[in-house]
Every structure is written in structure tokens, then in C-alpha cells.
């Protein structure tokens, strides 16, 4: 009997009866946006974007502080935070979604659609983003580019400045993930 019990506990211990989903984290993800018009080009980047992927559930979450975007000119940053995005009222932008057909066993590169909801400035928008996912050693790198419309996020741009800001903004992202224990 003791021998049977010993074997049971040995098997239970080695197979982890209570399975925990494996997660990876990127603390210093990069999100950049570009607005191109004939009047001026506006670029900004945020290098401290947080993202977590649940590799088993294929779920991805992204969170960023709006006031951590770096602009070429302080005046642009001021307009962005105070007039357009109202960062004191809406300090974060969040994306939650699923990596469709993600296969964690593939080493190397896979291109997948990430489908989810992006919430910014009090508005939510469903997005489908084509993304490149690379697995190298124990790390994952997720990157991509997509376009989004300013009007989808209820951002009011004064008529006088409407010509300075593109209606469609190009967003680029890159995240380097490492193993994470919550």
C-alpha cells in the first residue's frame, strides 16, 4: 500500500496536477505612431509599454501610459496630452485580444492575426492586426504595423489644426517577451 501511495505522489509531483498557464512578459515594449500631412509630420514613441501573453490560452494584453510618449517637440506632447488625448482623465490605453491560430511549438517565425479590442480616450474599437511572431530560445518577439482612424477615438482636433494631423495614423509596435511568473 505504501509503495502504491509513493508511486502515486511521485507521478502527481512530476506531472503537476494543478497546471498553471505559461505566460511571457514585455515590460519595455515599443509603440510608435506617425501622422503624415503636407503641413507637418508628427512622430512619437513609447518605450515602456507593458504586455503579457498567456501562451496556453493564446491571449494577449497590452497597456501603456499615454503621458510616456516622447515627441520631437514639447509643444506637440503638450497638445497630445492636454488637448487631444486628455491624459489626465484617460491615462492609459489598453488592448486585450487573442492570437488566432497561434502555435507555441513553432520555433522561428509565424505570421498571425491578433484580434481584440483597443480602448483609448474612453472609446473602444475592435481591431484585427497582422503580426509577426518570432520565437528565439526562450524569448518571443511580436511586431507589426497597422492603421487606425483618429475619429474612432472621439479625439477633437480644432479646425485650425485639422490640416496638421492625419485622419489615419500609422502605428508600429515591437515587444520582446521573456518568461514570467505572476
Amino acid at each position: 500500500m505504501i509503495r502504491v501511495l509513493a508511486i502515486f505522489f511521485l507521478i502527481a509531483g512530476s506531472t503537476n496536477l494543478v497546471e498553471v498557464d505559461e505566460k511571457v512578459i514585455a515590460r519595455q515594449g515599443k509603440v510608435s505612431f506617425f501622422s503624415y500631412t503636407s503641413v507637418e509630420d508628427i512622430k512619437a514613441e513609447n518605450n515602456q509599454v507593458l504586455s503579457v501573453i498567456d501562451l496556453d490560452q493564446k491571449k494577449i494584453a497590452v497597456s501603456m501610459l499615454m503621458n510616456a510618449f516622447i515627441f520631437e517637440k514639447a509643444l506637440m506632447r503638450e497638445h497630445f496630452n492636454e488637448s487631444y488625448l486628455e491624459s489626465d482623465i484617460y491615462p492609459k490605453a489598453v488592448f486585450e485580444g487573442e492570437i488566432i491560430d497561434f502555435d507555441r511549438t513553432i520555433t522561428g517565425e509565424q505570421t498571425r492575426i491578433i484580434k481584440g479590442v483597443f480602448a483609448m480616450h474612453g472609446k473602444s474599437k475592435e481591431l484585427e492586426i497582422k503580426s509577426k511572431i518570432e520565437k528565439k530560445d526562450n524569448k518571443y518577439i511580436v511586431s507589426g504595423v497597422f492603421e487606425t482612424l483618429v475619429k474612432d477615438y472621439d479625439i477633437n482636433i480644432p479646425p485650425l489644426l485639422a490640416g496638421n494631423i492625419a485622419k489615419s495614423i500609422s502605428v508600429e509596435f515591437r515587444f520582446e517577451y521573456e518568461p514570467y511568473e505572476d
Partner: peptide, 11 residues
């Protein structure tokens, strides 16, 4: 100081 997500962010 910029704020906190999981970690505190300073620029």
C-alpha cells in the same frame, strides 16, 4: 515620474 503599470515608469 510618469506613472505605474505593473512597474513604475520614469523618464
Amino acid at each position: 515620474l510618469k506613472g505605474i503599470l505593473k512597474d513604475v515608469i520614469m523618464l
